[in-house]
Design a binder for these strands. Structure first.
Lengths: 244, 244
DNA sequence: TATATACTATGACGCAGCGTCAGAGTCAAC
DNA sequence: GTTGACTCTGACGCTGCGTCATAGTATATA
């Protein structure tokens, strides 16, 4: 039988936390003394181990109680779900890091999100139309484009910029790396979702425009720092080159 | 001039949040109507953009206020620090994911952390001594070892197990990958911190023991699933092999 | 036995960043 | 004048504890 302090020292959990876990019914001591002191036995300690294990894996205390108190609960399923959740968080973090690095490169003081101005975007769309305007999907997508409010368009431009800022933050990575591949997917998906169905072929075509040295190059480099456009183009080729 | 609702729709921030930002002094509207309605101008909107940018990068609202309100604040320094923070979080997440995957592989129902029992650990230490006991660093480290409480030893064993569980979760990765390399560093650092100075040479020696098929192999595979010991050995060789 | 000390218990409040609900006022249109 | 859409504010809730205040308890020492 161990007192709160002993358990605290043993496991690194604070006394207050142990009291709290008792209060919310997550971990009760084996018994109380007449004066109300908590006493923990080895069974309680083992339960605490389990609690700490799941807690570190990011489960909520309520979730841990559910897992530990329902003997028929599918632990491995819960674990699998948690792994997915953790993976999503990790991916998000990777994206954020790339984004932050991109911001850093393009210059901390002038965090300018207006570089992609509307006229240029229209120009951009016009050139795309010249190349792929004859397809039916393109015309269908354009119909949706028409009735977007200016505010929505502004937000989309910023989102678009951001993708390139993230590319900029990945310049230290290899073009072939998986993370860069995911970013290529992201770009392709974004264009498909918001502008027109972006096939691998079209994407490779865009790669050429990005590194051609014109306004596209300028805008992209403004978003992610010098060399971002070239890096993006290389990344697209590395991950889509085979299919063309 | 835009109302709260309009700003909300435009930026995706809830009305209540805008009111909250006003209350805490983070973002004040350009003016109020006689009836107390908030009205935002473009300057306020731009400030909101900045707020959202930093918020997404994980800055606290207080931190954002500090950054935006002090014109001479070093933004790029803050950004660099935040990148470090994000990187740490990402590394931690990667470790957790590997750990969770390791747990998954060794079997969800019997999450047994007692596999490394004390006698085996003593055996482990004894063999290490046979090989490197003649060095001075070893003897110094052993002095510290002596006066650890049984509880501290137990915790260390669990921590040690955990490192192998994490290795087990990385089996799908390449031995040469950077993440696995970091895990090798972690193992080496842990041994150095808690047992004896673990040189690259010693680590490679351990690798041999891990895959020799004896108790070490059993214990490590119990921690991370079948094949973990062999994977760990290969990982050590891949990242420390050159220096031996 | 008195006291010093270490430990324990409980309740209340605080933290971040809002969401939610209640009650009341406001604005424009029909 | 009434409807419906907005807006205001304050209060409370959420997670997972830390911190502080106040009070009781256990134990060793003088």
């Amino acid at each position: 039988m161990k007192t709160v302090k002993e358990v605290s020292v043993l496991t690194g959990v604070s006394v207050r936390t142990l009291q709290y876990y008792d209060k919310i019914g997550l971990l009760s001591p084996a018994q109380y003394t007449q004066s109300g002191y908590r006493l923990y036995d080895t069974a309680a300690l083992e339960r605490l181990q389990q609690i700490l294990l799941f807690r570190e894996l990011g489960f909520s205390l309520a979730g841990i109680a559910e897992i530990l108190d329902a003997p028929d609960f599918d632990r491995s399923l819960a674990l699998a779900q948690q792994i997915e959740l953790l993976t999503l968080q990790a991916e998000r973090l990777q994206g954020l890091i790339a984004f932050a690095r991109g911001l850093q490169q393009k210059g901390g003081d002038c965090m300018d999100f207006q570089a992609f101005d509307k006229t240029k975007l229209e120009d951009y769309a016009r050139r795309a139309k010249e190349q792929w305007g004859h397809t039916e999907e393109y015309r269908a997508a354009m119909a949706a484009e028409e009735n977007r409010t200016p505010q929505e368009q502004e937000r989309m431009i910023r989102d678009f910029m951001r993708i390139f800022t993230e590319f900029g933050g990945m310049k230290t990575l290899s073009c072939e790396s998986e993370q860069v591949g995911m970013q290529v997917d992201k770009l392709q998906q974004f264009i498909t979702d918001h502008y027109y169905p972006c096939t691998d072929e079209i994407l490779c075509g865009l790669a050429g425009m990005y590194e051609a040295g014109g306004e596209f190059t300028e805008n992209i480099d403004a978003a992610g720092g010098a060399g971002t456009a070239a890096f993006t183009a290389a990344a697209i080729r590395a991950h889509r080159g085979r299919s063309v």
